[in-house]
Amino acid sequence: MMLRNWSVRIGSMVLVLLVVVALAAPWLGTVDPTLFDAASRDLRPGQPGEITTLEGDTVKHVFVMGSDSYGRDIYSRVLYGTRVSLIVGLAVALVALALGIVAGLVAGYIRWADGVLMRVMDGIMAIPAILIAIAVVALWRASLTSVILAIAIPEIPRVTRLVRSLVLTIREEPYVEAAVALGTSTPKIMFGHILPNTAAPLLVQGTYICAFAILLEAILSFLGVGLPPDIPTWGNIMAEGRVQFVAYPHNVFFPGIFLAVTVLAVNMLGDGLRDTLDPKMTQGRVRTQVLDEHA
């Protein structure tokens, strides 16, 4: 039923392809994406050059997507960059969902915690997401963990709000009231009865977070406050390429296409899921919440 939706179908097909590319990167004609040789700098797509291996041997290599100003192979970097982008997107979605679910359940179910928690969430929401992310990454050391946390933190309030509102609705349902009357423990009600009913909207929300996280990771790298530059990510490749964008547009062009296609695929998946899982959801409503952070 879900796969009959063309949006879901295209989106998931592209994503599966990207996952395959990411996993199979070493066998797709790539070289070590961090290796460089100054003799091969600024090659245009398709030009041959050379790469010096870690053992100190020099080998011939064709730069399918050209090379950057270090002389690194853009094709290898873009392919390996797929891994980073997918990991960041997935990890941010999982972290934000996990923390948001816990906070949302607590806020929705435990009255006294509700006020405090929601005020804190309001506070986080009042700070533009990109500023939180920049501050976290720049002030703490940039690493995969700090970048994932930096992007996930501003997402948490939205998940929390969604879960809380769902909890408030569901707890009025007869079967939950019955469970309460039967003396079922609070955690059991929360995780056994309420959580399963929030799965569908959270899945949709999760895809949007994932798409947003992939974009924001690239933006942070682009601003120079993202993952360390020696890790090949699409944002890093573009950040290095922007210096000579006019002369060598391939440095921005190839990772840019990969980034746009990936985010597009995740977004399409999300849109499709939303339409199939919950036709009642007004177009754009969940999107609106997610877009809060597109900044």
Partner: peptide, 22 residues
């Protein structure tokens, strides 16, 4: 609109600069 959500702002910016300014 799906495309609009997916294109990184700076990629678009560079395309516009290249076309309209340069």
């Amino acid at each position: 609109s799906v495309l609009g959500f997916s294109i990184p702002v700076f990629v678009l910016a560079y395309l516009l600069i290249w076309l309209f300014s340069l």
